[in-house]
Design a protein around this nucleic acid. Sequence first.
DNA 1: GAACTGTATGAAGTGTCTTAGTACACCGAG
DNA 2: CTCGGTGTACTAAGACACTTCATACAGTTC
Lengths: 123, 123
Amino acid sequence: MLNLDYRDPRPIYEQVRDGLRRLMVTGVIREGEKLPSVRSLAGTLAINPNTIQRAYEQLEKEGYLRSVPGKGSFASPSAGVDDGRRQDLLAAFDRTAAELLYLGLTPDELAGRIRALKGGESV
Amino acid sequence: MLNLDYRDPRPIYEQVRDGLRRLMVTGVIREGEKLPSVRSLAGTLAINPNTIQRAYEQLEKEGYLRSVPGKGSFASPSAGVDDGRRQDLLAAFDRTAAELLYLGLTPDELAGRIRALKGGESV
DNA sequence: GAACTGTATGAAGTGTCTTAGTACACCGAG
DNA sequence: CTCGGTGTACTAAGACACTTCATACAGTTC
């Protein structure tokens, strides 16, 4: 379900956080679905539960999941994602696209890449 | 020319590196132009020269500038940018766009943002 | 030679990441 | 109610990255 790369300079909790977010974005984990518990995921990945909790904590702040004491953590609907996350993504999108244009790619090429992503056949 | 934000969790050398890269991408610094020396920029920003050197070192690996002992550092043409950097950017572009689509934006909206960036009126 | 340039090295302080261990409160099933 | 699983909180410790300070060397320009 998730892969850790110890050669990756990014902290483990970021790899877990980004990996889980990606699973939700790509539809592997769907709205309302129960995520692995802090302790079980820590066991699976052979890391400390505190590290998992930190990843969950941040995903909850972003609005990607909701944690309920005693019950577990559940994926939230995409509409519930925090607006700050949206703003950050848009800013990152503009920065990346601007540099790619500087490097010689055309707006049409970038638009083509977006269409090729297939928006997750949602709605 | 460059702003440092000490509330930003990113390391200073990354802020300098990304800031300089942005100045080149936006055309403020043009191909062949001489960049501030390691020591002078360190003095301007009131930080250690080693930190500037680290930023320059990485930009040179990316192909954005070329440093010559005794002479200085000079902005390279966009065609000289490393291919690894291109690949990283494309991967980041796809990830960001995929998440934005998941959050409800349409391919047309994203394409519109790209056109609004105005590719630096180069060539 | 003097003054600039990039480059290299080592030591010290600070902060983050991660682990380990413990503890508390909540929920659901038996 | 009891028990096991859940999220959450806290402290301590070690490992590592970031940054600074200081020094040094080599190349260029005048």
